[in-house]
């Protein structure tokens, strides 16, 4: 069981780190949102999943409280993270930032 916990923590840290590196390496705002949002959300599932498993394995009231609260935090994170990044992408586009190296841009010509 310990090995499973360690594996979950390691995978979570790996994907969170990938998100941070993607933030540095991609060329413009939209691709950075791609990397940052996907990787940190997916990594957080594993990291917080390890905490939930740990809490349930304790078996008593304190561990159960930890597990349920961590699960609620995970659900809030999963709901708010894509919504927030969508708001940022829309705000960036309407604020006049064009996607770099874009091969096609359907929002440019008459929309709405």
């Amino acid at each position: 069981m310990n090995a499973l916990l360690y594996a979950l923590l390691a995978v979570g840290a790996l994907f969170n780190g990938l998100g941070a590196v993607a933030l540095l390496r991609f060329p413009d705002v939209y691709t950075r949102i791609h990397g940052a949002t996907k990787c940190t959300t997916f990594g957080s599932i594993f990291s917080i999943g390890a905490v939930v498993l740990y809490g349930f394995l304790q078996g008593d009231g304190a561990g159960g409280t930890l597990a349920v609260h961590a699960l609620i935090a995970l659900v809030f994170l999963l709901l708010t993270n894509p919504t927030g990044s969508h708001a940022l992408a829309r705000g960036a586009y309407r604020g006049g930032i064009k996607p770099a190296q874009a091969v096609v841009d359907h929002m440019e010509k008459g929309k709405r």
Binding site: L18, C39, V103
Partner: peptide
Amino acid sequence: VAWRVITGNIRPGIV
């Protein structure tokens, strides 16, 4: 995304 972070192989656009 991990593969694209490492290789930098992207072809972006808004559809």
